[in-house]
Design a protein around this nucleic acid. Structure first.
Lengths: 234, 234
DNA sequence: TGCATTCTATTTGTCGACAGGATACTTGAC
DNA sequence: GTCAAGTATCCTGTCGACAAATAGAATGCA
């Protein structure tokens, strides 16, 4: 059956072709649906989205600009690998962004910002309670994105979002490891950060953000360094 | 005469089309050869570079990804405006990147890094002596880029380079204002930073970077706030 | 004369097709 | 049997063309 494309297609609008492909591929890469290192075939994508190669290529160029795919000249583009050897630079950068955005949020937020932040925090708490790993990742990102927005510095916000997205692949690995016993601390830490921001306590916001980042980094590092060898008597 | 394209053209290599256009447009935007807000016509560029619209569009997509052009759907793309109202966020971010990269360079550099850094510093000093504004901007960027490279954190390096490039448009305005009396302090500050990095003095590197950033920010703010009204007796 | 509407023209978004390279496979020689 | 050269096939980079959408001009109406 190959005629599925010819009938039920919802008639995409004119300028939306590349965006749909971009967002779809982006989600699949960050959710590890597309494995790091796997090649990407343009004609295959063109068939799948039932459109020409032109918008596909535009989406790939955008993804390459964000480092999510790597394109070798005259050869197939592939999903970027996770650079485990240089993870410490990633942790260093994202820790700094946690701190800076939270500090700036304490300084520059307006009241409506707090409502938005609290809303995302409620959704995050619900996701933790429901033990929904994917929802936890999404709502956690939204929570910190809202804090960064309240900080009112687009440069920090953009870098932070990029780092959070790149970390999404790590978090996906991480959360998969313990779907049952979920980190309740994160919810409490978020609450403390909200309180510090609301009181416009810059230094406390900074400290809490740093502790939060350290907590996450430590957990992921423990996960990566875990020893799964079984103690078998020989 | 329209046959200029058919004869003297240096026969571009296969994969290089979009890169040439990207780099050319990027330089022209950052040098203010293309005024902020001016529209960009694809067919015009296609004629100018004597190639199809496809590589032109790819270059524009990349530039849009870096925020150097803004593309309105179904309408012409235009050179991004300089956001003078939010300059303080730019200054805040670039100051932090000055500090972080210099501090990390003091921590992580190897001896060959210092040679490279000193080489760029020599070129910068020569440009200052020659009162060549464009060369000053270029060599100054290379100097700080080398420091960032020595810091070994690609996330910081990438953001810093983006900020330096975006600042290139400001610096272009700034340096144009006093081609004669050039800021000799910058050369001395660079030397002090090199010394602190070489001695692996993290805190001193940080302080010097911050002072250097403050110096530049102050100069640009003074330039932007200058009062050019003439005192005419009425 | 001013405003709304229709028509036109320019420009973008998308498409199908072709050619240049690169990889993989086949064939031949040592 | 192994290595090298030639060949075939696949995929990307580029091209010219068409269609949708918007902006501007022209026209009609109050």
């Amino acid at each position: 059956m190959t005629n599925t494309a010819s009938e039920g297609q919802p008639e995409r609008k004119r300028g939306s072709g590349a965006r749909v492909v971009y967002e779809s591929l982006r989600d699949e890469i960050l959710d590890l649906s597309l494995a790091p290192g796997s090649p990407i075939d343009e004609v295959q994508l063109a068939e799948r989205f039932s459109m020409s190669r032109t918008p596909i290529r535009e989406a790939l160029v955008r993804l390459a600009g964000e480092g999510l795919v790597e394109t070798l000249p005259n050869r197939s583009t592939m999903v970027s690998n996770i650079d485990f050897l240089n993870l410490h630079t990633f942790f260093d950068a994202i820790t700094l962004m946690y701190r800076v955005t939270t500090r700036l949020a304490a300084q520059n937020h307006v009241v409506t910002d707090l409502d938005i932040i609290r809303g995302h925090q409620a959704e995050f708490a619900a996701a933790v309670a429901a033990q929904d790993a994917l929802a936890m990742i999404a709502t956690n990102r939204a929570f910190h994105a809202a804090i960064a927005e309240a900080g009112r510095n687009p440069y920090y916000t953009a870098l932070f979002l990029r780092l959070l997205d790149e970390g999404r692949r790590l978090l996906r690995l991480y959360y998969q490891s313990f779907q049952d016993q979920l980190p309740r601390e994160f919810v409490d830490e978020h609450e403390a950060m909200i309180a510090a921001i609301a009181e416009r306590d810059l230094d406390r916001s900074d400290r809490l953000a740093r502790a939060h980042a350290d907590q996450i980094v430590r957990q992921i590092q423990q996960f990566l360094a875990r020893d799964t060898r079984q103690d078998i008597a020989l």
